[in-house]
Design a protein around this nucleic acid. Structure first.
Lengths: 197, 197
DNA sequence: ACCCTGTTCGGACCAGCAGTCCGGATGCAG
DNA sequence: CTGCATCCGGACTGCTGGTCCGAACAGGGT
């Protein structure tokens, strides 16, 4: 039984450290309440050297992206091959609403992480594989009622609303899903066709 | 004590240096093509000390904001007290289109500056007086067909599309007004009522 | 049980950044 | 011309993201 895992090349200590770094990062993000998190601090809290952080994640942006990926992986999977209405098969409107419900939940629950990631990615935000995936999906949905270039723009515009700081701004503690509902209404209006029952 | 408070004449060299710093900043922004501009470099190109830059503008964000203010001051004026359709008096739909045409032009012509400003402001973006002004205006327009909270969100969402990097992404050299047209179509769709007869 | 080798570790190190400070220069009023 | 408030400049600080390399070590082969 030689460790029937998918990857046999990663050493045990490496895996352990990777996990420690991720945990430390999310803890510092949460405790800092939005204040910038330095990688020195992350390394210190994780109990590893700074070099380790960079070898694992390449850069500050890579670390945050890895964390974000972790939080949204299940949504990604559900969208591509899950059951309707999230997955393929449902009418466009239903899929759009279901998708924004899922993405909204991720955003509302990780607004600080989202903001930090945007800040770190800076101009490369629109080349981020995660962003490209969401954009492709949304764009495809809009394309049902719009020409391609218009759908492309609308997808960008809707995703632009998922700015980490904006989500924080628009999410009162007593109504954690307000942002999602607003985005859903907006997206339906943009989809075209009928808004009223 | 009647005139000395705000009208305290600015020394000639101070005024000259302020101008030199602004010019140097815009030059470095344009030449850098989006690369981050350090204030050391700005000061060097302007031929002044770094302390001067900070005394005049307070911080990196303040400098970029001053530059942005310069580029959008006339639009601001036209919106508040200019002739229709930009100024008060025209139907909501016309005012919306005129406003987005103006703001779009500013964004398309200053996308790099816009991106740099967003990066520098970070979380305080939504407290920026300039942002608040645009938001109040847009929100007011949307309020003609929407409840207040919805109008507030829609204004945020439309402004979110004015991300400096997104504008750059969506502005091909051969069609410099494409972004503006897209935003206008989107905003009209969000305004509600009739999209097309 | 025990090497042997390639992988990983750790933290000193680097360049560069925003922002501060104060002795000295200088415009300007009288 | 003189005195003084204002402004200037660039050395300085504290911190950052990111690099580097000798040391430590995991873990399969024997």
């Amino acid at each position: 039984m030689t460790t029937s895992r998918t990857e046999r090349t990663e050493r045990a200590d490496a895996l352990r450290n990777r996990e420690a770094v991720l945990r430390a990062t999310e803890r510092l993000l949460a405790e800092g309440g939005g204040a910038p998190v330095s990688l020195d601090r992350v390394a210190a809290l994780a109990g590893v050297g700074k070099g380790t952080v960079f070898r694992r994640f390449g850069s500050r942006a890579g670390l945050l992206q890895a964390l974000l990926e972790e939080r949204s992986a299940s949504l990604r999977l559900a969208v591509t091959e899950g059951p309707p209405p999230l997955g393929p098969g449902a009418p466009v409107r239903e899929r759009l609403l279901a998708f924004l419900d899922g993405l909204g939940a991720v955003a509302e629950g990780n607004a600080i992480l989202l903001a930090a990631h945007e800040q770190a990615c800076a101009a490369d935000k629109y080349r981020d594989p995660s962003y490209l995936f969401w954009h492709r999906h949304l764009s495809g949905l809009f394309a049902a009622h719009h020409p391609a270039t218009e759908a492309d723009f609308l997808a960008h515009a809707v995703l632009a609303a998922f700015d980490g700081d904006l989500v924080r701004e628009l999410t009162p503690p007593d109504d954690p899903r307000r942002f999602t509902r607003s985005v859903q209404r907006m997206a339906v209006a943009l989809l075209g066709g009928d808004t009223a029952p």
